[in-house]
């Protein structure tokens, strides 16, 4: 996982609500056993439409995706996040996110920023304008900035996630340091809890 500190990029506006992970990464691409290379398949169906925003050269190197409420709903497929990661997205901004998608992003190293609808509307209008919108996002200060349009928005982020993202830390390593506590917990579990040991 790479660390995420300052991102300055054009904003890719996806002005839709309830974008589900079946749209972000259609099922026919879930058969791969690799972890990388999902970018070309992201939004596969929608991309067939030449007017789809991802086909607009203006947004070619966007690292920031702006969407509407309930982004990433539906399936738990992390492939959706891998697809976004592979097309270069590092930050997704929306009024709300589906829970599993949000937590998947955090694990992969993408940041989901939740803003209120009014802020989203402002950013959406500007980023859909002819020349687009460039935002600077600073995770350390939790700020979104564009001086030209006097944008200066503070955003919330979970402290632990922030620490992990800033330092590019994988949380399995962090948990493994708690091995003693896990062992201790295991010694106190009920005997009647199920085990799959005898199933085969």
């Amino acid at each position: 996982m790479n660390s995420l500190k300052n991102i300055s990029s054009i904003v890719l506006p996806l002005n839709r609500a309830d974008v589900d992970t079946d749209q972000i990464m259609p099922k026919q691409y879930l058969k791969r056993i690799e972890r990388t290379g999902y970018g070309p398949f992201a939004f596969d169906e929608w991309r067939k439409n030449p007017n789809f925003v991802l086909n607009n050269p203006l947004y070619k190197n966007a690292q920031i995706l702006l969407a509407q409420r309930n982004f990433g709903s539906g399936s738990s497929r992390e492939h959706a996040v891998w697809g976004l990661e592979d097309i270069g997205i590092k930050i997704v901004i929306a009024p709300s996110f589906a829970d599993i998608f949000n937590s998947n992003c955090g694990k992969v190293g993408l940041l989901c920023i939740q803003l209120n609808q009014k802020e989203i509307n402002t950013l959406m209008n500007l980023s859909e304008s002819k020349s687009g919108l460039i935002l600077s996002i600073n995770l350390e200060d939790q700020k979104i900035i564009n001086e030209e349009y006097s944008i200066n928005i503070n955003f919330e982020v979970d402290n632990f996630l922030k620490y992990r993202l800033l330092n590019g830390l994988d949380d399995i390593g962090i948990t493994m340091q708690r091995d003693e506590a896990i062992q201790d917990f295991e010694s106190k579990r009920f005997n009647f809890y199920p085990s799959s040991k005898t199933i085969i």
């Binding site: 937590s103 399995i172 948990t175």
Partner: peptide, 16 residues
Amino acid sequence: IGTSEVEHVLATQSLP
């Protein structure tokens, strides 16, 4: 859970 979490649970039988 997502695949990173699957890996986390496989390795540690726990989840933050």
